[in-house]
Each structure stands twice: as structure tokens, then as C-alpha cells.
Amino acid sequence: MFNSAGKRNVLPGFGLTMGYTLLYVSLIVIIPLSAVFFKTASLSWEGFVEAVGSARVLASYRLTFGIALFAALLNSVFGLLSAWVLVRYRLPGKRIVDALVDLPFALPTAVAGITLATLYAPSGWLGRFLTPFGIKVAYTPLGILVAMTFIGLPFVVRTVQPVLEELETELEEAASCLGASRLQTFTRVIFPVLLPPLLTGFALAFARAVGEYGSIIFIAGNMPMVSEITPLLIITKLEQFDYAGATAIASVMLAASFLILFVVNILQWWSRRYSEK
């Protein structure tokens, strides 16, 4: 079926590379992932509802999705600000700071997890300044927020940064000539252009935070109903050999991530709507 489309192209190798690609995608991604849905389908409706809707599971959804949303919001604000500072202002060591932004992508999550837990422990470098105010970060939901903010940090910066770099200065000059103040120029001319990448970065940071495991479990405390995230619950069920229960929860999370992926695609389509000829 693909040959007919590739026929007009004189370059070789389509059949081979395409065939290999489809085979590999099927073996590594499609077949394994479909196992989740087949396993879930083996549950009765009541069993499924019980597995994904018990009080403990619902509490973990609230915690995971709620804090992930909050972390993504934090990252939107500070990520936009960081991208702005990195693109617009001159500062020494900018290239190093810029490279370091990707640290959460490059640093293994377990390392991030034990480091954040140690830093924010009551006697840790950062925790000791918070303890006198009665603020506990490690082993509380606040710790989860810290870890989720850390791992989501690069997304907003990296989606906003290139758009900001390509923004023509003429647009701002035009606004200035037309009598707009700097604030008006930002809110009416610059921000609307940055909004689609900002939302995309937000969605990506949110998706990452929802699924995150390694950096969170060390700092979370993992108390059922209080600080137990959904991915951990899946593992707990697995360890109790409740494969069906674990898989049912996983299917809910998979559906959530596909939904986010879908939203991101819509956002990207939306952000291109003005630039299309």
C-alpha cells in the first residue's frame, strides 16, 4: 500500500526502511502497549471500577494530577521568565545557564530524587531554613511539588525560547511608534505570540509530572491517601501480584497521557494558524 505512494520518488530504500520501521514500532511500542488494554479488558466492569475508583486510588489521582497541574503552572510562570531573561538580557555565563536548563532531562531521576530529598530534609541545606517557619517539604505533598517542578522545568523554557528568539524586533518597534507603552507592547504584541508555545510547554510539563516516578518517591513520603502518587500505586499493586488492578490504573493514566498528547497536537496546529499562507 505504501509502494504506490512512494513510486514517484526516485530515491531508494523506502520499502526496506518503512518495513523495518513498522516492524520495530509494532514490536517495541504497539504490541507491548496493547497488552495494557487487553489485560484491562479481562476485568469485569465492576472489577475495573473498583480497581480504578477506590478511595485510595482516587486520592492518588487528586494528588498526582492536582500537584502536577500546580507544578506546570509554576513552571509556566518561571519558565516564561527564564526564557525571557535568557533571550533578551545580557548576562555573564549565559551559555552555561542555558545548557544547564536541560539538566532535569539529563540527570537520572533517581539521582534527582535522592538529592532533592536530602536538600529539603528538615536538616538539609534548604530544609533547615524552612523548618523554623514550620514548613515541611520532604515527605509531604510539598516535596512532590518540588520534584515535579524540577523535572518539568525545561519544557516551558524550551518551547518558548525559540519563538521568542525569532520574534522580529520590528514588531516591538512598530508598537512603540504607534504609541504603545512597554507593558502594552508586551501584553498585546509579544504575549499573544508566546501563548501557544507557553500552553504547549505547560501541557508537556504537566504530562511529564503526572507520569513521573523516580524523582518523586524519595521525597514524597508515600503515605497512602496523603502523599502516594498514582505511579507508585501501580507498583504497589504489582508487588502484591494484583496485575489486573495495576493494569487498570495504568490504563487510566495512559488514557490521560494520550489526551494530553492530543491537546498538545491541537495546540501546535493552533499556533501555526496565523503563519499559514
Partner: peptide, 18 residues
Amino acid sequence: AKERQVGFVFQHYALFRH
């Protein structure tokens, strides 16, 4: 520029695309 009240037409127009 804001205070001068001049009209400026840029070479590549600099229209606000949104």
C-alpha cells in the same frame, strides 16, 4: 519613538500576525 508620533512603515511591514 512613542513620544514622537511618527508613522513608520517597516520594510517587511511588521504586521501583528495574531
